[in-house]
Structures are given as C-alpha cells and as structure tokens.
C-alpha cells in the first residue's frame, strides 16, 4: 500500500490538475488576506482573540478566509477523487495493477490516503499562508489556544475535504465514465453544499408545513455537510459564537458576549465533528465494498 500511496502522491504533485488547484488556493489566500486587511481594524475592537479573526473577517464585499476554504475544499476533494478508480480503469492500468501480488483494498486505501495527504498539504498551505502574512500585517502573535483552535479547524477542514473526496471516489467506483463521476459529486455539492442562507428558502419550499419551527429547519440544514462544517468553523474560529442552538430571546439577551474557552467550544462542535467523520466513513466504506466486489473486466 505504501508503494501505491507514494506513487499516487508523486502523480498528484506532478499533475497539471494539482498545479491549477494550488493556483486557486494561492489566489483565494491572497483575496482573503486582502479582505482581512480591510476589515480587521473594526473587528479587532470586538472582544476575543485577534489573530484568528484573520480567518473570519470579511472585507466590504469580499468573503472571509473561512468561507473561501469552505467553498474551495469540496472542489479540491472532488478534483482529487473523481477519477480515482475509473480513470485507472479506462486507461487500462487497473487490471495490470490488480494482477500484481497486492490486496485489492490497498489500491483504494492508497488512493484515499494519498488524497488526504494532498488535501492536508493544500489546506495547511492556505492556513499557513494567511496566518504568516497576517502575522506580518497585524503584528499580533497567536496565543497557544488560538494555535490549537486553528489546528482543530485544519483537521476539520481536511475531514470535510475527505468527505467530498470519498463521495467522488464512490462515484468513480460506481460509474465507468469520467464525466458522470465528475458531474454527480458536483451536482450534489451544488444541492447540499451551498451556504445555509441560500439553503433555508429551499427547506421552506420543500417542507412548508414544518418550516416555521426553527428546530426542524436546523435539523434539515444539519443534513448538509456544508452546514455542519460551517457551524464547526464558526464555533472554532469565533470563540464568542455559541452555535445555532435553540435559544429564547430572554436567554440571548442575558447572555454575556464573552469568548468561550476551548473545551467549551469543542463541546459544542463535537456532534458536528462526529457526523462529518461518519459521513466520510460511510462514503469510503461504500466505495470500498463496491470496489472489492466489482468485476475487473475493462470491456
């Protein structure tokens, strides 16, 4: 499996696809830094740590780094995974590799792991770029807690990307055509991966009778991995944020706008985290099972 992992990584890093993705990452980082540069002065007045505000501050019309990551990560995940299996199949390399004395699952495991490593490098690059440049810009060093928060955010972004990659790999196992396995996850991404603000009218439209209840709205919204990731992001990067919990107006009014401690924030996002990991695991497990049972014939 290590051989396959190494080869896949070498493949990714020498491919044009990866170059384009990295370019995208750099442009997004640059834009996000510009956004933070515009907005950080006002944002710094609010309570809470300053450094991680770099990631959530929006400019006048430019979304924040966190939004960029939430949009980019699925694209990266899908781009890395959509041709994992059927690409090899159509180029005729799959049965050549499977006729070597290796277990069949090491092929798909190796590909998945290589994808995660690539994802981690890309997301790590964005965060470090923004963090490093932001440090020069605002001159406020991050506290230990902020670093831990950023790291957990990094891990959750990788898991979020792994979900989309797992989904793309699943379609690459199910369908022989590259176009289909690319369009399917993209379509799913458009339907469930768009921001919750856009998403809510859909729910209102689909379930008009129950949509009055905020609880139901929230529950439906939480089916979307995007929403889960967004929630996790908010809680992790904006310590004041308490999540989309059901609060009455009396509780909200008596609430102090002070930042939560790290363990309290973690407590809030723990379910979101678990669900994201579970979704990823389900995607991967299905592709794994299907792949293990699949006929290898190329024609």
């Amino acid at each position: 499996m290590l051989t396959i992992l190494r080869k896949e990584l070498a493949d990714y890093f020498t491919s044009v696809r990866c170059f384009v993705l990295f370019l995208l990452v750099f442009i997004a980082s640059a834009v996000a830094i510009y956004a933070a540069y515009n907005g950080i002065r006002e944002a710094a007045i609010d309570p809470g740590p300053v450094f991680i505000k770099l990631f959530t501050t929006t400019g006048q019309d430019i979304p924040s780094m966190a939004v960029f990551i939430a949009l980019l990560v699925p694209i990266i995940g899908i781009a890395l995974g959509f041709d994992a299996i059927n690409g090899e199949r159509s180029s005729g390399t799959l049965n050549r590799i499977l006729s070597q004395p290796i277990y069949r699952d090491s092929v798909i495991n190796g590909k998945f792991l290589a994808g995660i490593v690539t994802l981690a490098i890309m997301i790590g690059a964005i965060i470090l770029l923004v963090g490093g440049y932001g440090l020069r810009m605002i001159g406020v060093p991050p506290s230990a807690e902020e670093i831990v928060r950023l790291f957990i955010y990094f891990v959750s972004a990788v898991i979020y990307g792994a979900f989309w990659m797992g989904l793309a790999i699943l379609f690459s196992v199910l369908f022989r055509s590259l176009a289909v396995s690319l369009l399917f996850p993209l379509a799913i991404w458009i339907v469930i991966g768009i921001p919750a603000s856009v998403f809510n009218p859909y729910i209102n439209f689909l379930v008009p009778a129950v949509s009055d209840s905020v609880g139901v709205q929230l529950m439906v919204a939480r089916l979307s991995p995007y929403f889960l990731f967004e929630e996790a992001t908010q809680v992790l990067l904006i310590p004041v944020w308490r999540g989309y919990a059901l609060l009455t107006s009396t509780t909200t009014s008596s609430m102090l706008p002070n930042p939560l401690s790290l363990d309290q924030s973690l407590l809030i996002v723990w379910p979101q985290f678990t669900v994201l990991i579970a979704l990823t695991a389900v995607c991967f497990a299905i592709s794994y099972i299907v792949f293990m049972r699949q006929e290898i014939r190329s024609t």
Binding site: I4, K7, T14, S91, G92, T93, Q100, P101
Partner: peptide
C-alpha cells in the same frame, strides 16, 4: 499473482511516467 503475470488485452500505462518508471512501480508492487 506472485507466480503468474498477466498482460491485459487493452494494456495501459501511466502516460506521464517513463517506461522505466512504470516498470519500477510494478517491481515495487512485487
């Protein structure tokens, strides 16, 4: 699979790798 080699009907290689690199990969898998 350790004893037997197989050449598929539509054999394919990793196009971006050299012939030697393709063979090296197979050697590593073995």
């Amino acid at each position: 699979k350790r004893l037997a080699g197989y050449l598929p009907e539509k054999v394919g290689f990793y196009d971006t790798l050299t012939a030697r690199e393709n063979l090296r990969f197979i050697a590593e898998l073995n």
